[in-house]
């Protein structure tokens, strides 16, 4: 039970910090909307809805990357990560708290971006939305771990996309598939599998990447 209350306290702290500093969410929102407008000009006339779905996924992945690159900034200031590592709580709770907070930011950005996508380009059905949700979970799970890893490196802003993108390819396949395939359920199942595998892996390995 203390594990759950630790995670809740850590997530709530991140939301509160973001509410005060407003560093991340407005940037994510503006980025995803600008990207959608760029896509309008990038898509030649008559390419149809299918291409738009593909580009939606490019927008989602890069918006997530933008949020993830800021994920550990509050901890980097004032050496807070040391403070968290010193605390006797389970270190995976730190990962889970960060994952949930990042997920909340990404979902908040999508609450605006997805209706805009429907308005500008093409409709999204329930399967496609479920695909977005599942892929969000996956990318935040691996992303918050990899962002902590990249934060120890020299060129952390450059490193993070390089680390995340190869791992995000299956998520894009699942996401696009759930939007365009007749049999979207298969892709949802695949995303669920991905989330399961990589969430467990990230959860179990987080404590190894944050200590020196």
């Amino acid at each position: 039970m203390t594990y759950v209350s630790d995670v809740v306290a850590l997530t709530r702290k991140d939301l509160r910090v973001e509410l005060r500093a407003r560093d991340t969410l407005p940037a994510m929102l503006l980025f995803v909307l600008s990207t959608l407008v760029v896509f309008h000009f990038a898509l030649p006339a008559g390419t149809g809805a299918t291409a738009a779905y593909g580009l939606l996924w490019v927008a989602i992945v890069f918006t997530a990357l933008l949020g993830l690159s800021r994920a550990w900034v509050p901890e980097a200031e004032h050496g807070v990560l040391d403070g968290l590592v010193l605390a006797p709580c389970d270190r995976s709770a730190i990962w889970l708290g960060k994952t949930l907070a990042t997920l909340a930011f990404l979902l908040a950005a999508q609450v605006v971006a997805l209706p805009a996508f429907v308005l500008f380009f093409a409709p999204l059905d329930a399967t496609a939305l479920a695909g977005v949700l599942l892929a969000d979970v996956g990318i935040c799970a691996i992303g918050s771990l990899l962002a902590a890893m990249a934060a120890a490196g020299r060129a952390r802003e450059l490193l993070l996309p390089l680390l995340v993108l190869p791992l995000a390819i299956p998520l894009v396949v699942g996401g696009v598939g759930s939007a365009v395939s007749d049999d979207g359920g298969r892709f949802l199942l695949f995303l669920l599998l991905y989330d399961g595998v990589f969430a467990v892996l990230s959860w179990a390995s987080f404590e190894y990447v944050i200590t020196e």
Partner: peptide
Amino acid sequence: GFVGHEPLVYREL
């Protein structure tokens, strides 16, 4: 208990 060079607390809280 540990007191480092930096205060180890969140700036925005």
